[in-house]
Write a protein that binds this DNA or RNA. Sequence first.
RNA 1: CGGGGCGUGGCGCAGUCCGGCUAGCGCGCUUGCAUGGGGUGCAAGAGGUCGGAGGUUCAAAUCCUCUCGCCCCGACCA
Length: 479
Amino acid sequence: MAEEKLPTRNENFSEWYNQLVLRAEMADYAPVRGCMVVRPYGWTLWENMQGELDRRLKETGHVNAAFPILIPLSFFEKEKEHVEGFAPELAVVTHGGGVKLEEPLAVRPTSETIIGFMYAKWIKSWRDLPVLINVWGSVLRWELRTKLFLRTAEFYWQEGHTAHATKDDALEEMYRILDIYADFAINEAAIPVIKGRKSETERFAGAQITTSIEGMMQDKRALQSATSHYFGQNFAKAFNIQYLDKNNTLQFCETTSWGLSTRMIGAIIMVHGDDQGLILPPRIAPIQAVIVPIYKNDAEKTKVMEIADRLFKELKLANIRVKMDDREEVTPGFKYNDWELRGVPLRIEIGPKDLEKGSVALARRDIPGREGKSFVPQTALASHITRLLTEIQSSMLARATTFRDANIHEPGNYDELKQIVQDGWAFAWWCESKDCEAKVKEDTKATIRNIPLDQPGGSGKCIVCGERADKKVYFAKAY
RNA sequence: CGGGGCGUGGCGCAGUCCGGCUAGCGCGCUUGCAUGGGGUGCAAGAGGUCGGAGGUUCAAAUCCUCUCGCCCCGACCA
């Protein structure tokens, strides 16, 4: 029954990641090129993430709705940059009901166009604004190269689309959402992300401003984990989203859109996992604690299971997502490895020795080996575990933050920058010229991840050309 | 689309260069007994027209031609 060992992170990060996803049964490859099957374990994680993000969105006045998956191809022509950006990635339906369609239909790669079309019908007056709609669904982009969760042809996400009366309102919305995403990433996924604005080169097709949260994976590459865009009146003009203001004057709306996808699952795996498998943040883990009962014979089994069942019920009552692993056909040792691979934050072992002492053995997933083990009394177990889960959550965030900060460096000159981005992030002054940005990309393959909102202030010299620079930015290789 | 690699029981592979008899191995699966606090042990068993088509040959997983599919690296990207 000896499962083959996982490849280690250092050996081959990419292979390590793939094996983790497949072996932990998060996802699998679909028969269609570049598509992914999200398996129940992975989907439960996503549902938990959805719950936490959806709550935040609803608390800030957003409502959910659904829009069609098929969009008339002509809709994409209406916004010049948008069509240029997405044309190469569109999948197009040409036939329906056995006959050739008069107008081909695009499978949505994102829904700005069809939502813009609908908003134009719905919005008439300043009283209708703002419109704050969110959509949970999936989209399809014909990616040339795919990787489970990080970039698949079809992926699951939420996309929010809002319309506002003024520029200030729309910008405020864009930043509000960025804050929600960052809060979600930090406090639910335990990923310390950096909020910032994208450079002109990197921004979304059709957007005037694109903001993102960027996280550092354990191979030190950056992952854009969510984006929030401000469109100005671009889409409003393309789709005639207009309203009459208080002075009875016709005005174009200001719109935004923003999205967070199952890519975040990939981020969680790449930020927290170790050579034993996944490590999932307790707040969103499908299973927060697993009970492994241990016994040698039926007499012991009866006694052990009695206690195990009682504790299981207690934990359930305390709203802990607990799982009883009462499989007969595998040994405890196998179960330990199995749940470690799946990233369950806490393991509870109950055996004959514990019966005598009235204790259980706990093992923290985030601290492998003896260090993470403790023996605690069965009494008040639920409250102890609740506390421990909170502690695991915060120590995961702390560890990821320490790792990130240890791998961000400030280059003193261009040569140093080239060195740094080979194995880390560089935080440096940039003059905001496209040429300097392009030069770095050409020389190193690193790009400007974002221009952080949190700026040191003052000014410096562009790390590339030496001219005056007002912004400091992160350069890194990205997924 | 360019470069590289691979298709052999459910999964992972060996065998291919140099053709040869009933195509092997590990894992998993089935059954039984033992075992059980860190990936259990032993025994027995089921399971494959070697990606597809054509050709060469007494004989093809192996050689030749064509074809289909997948993976990795690059260009594109949440």
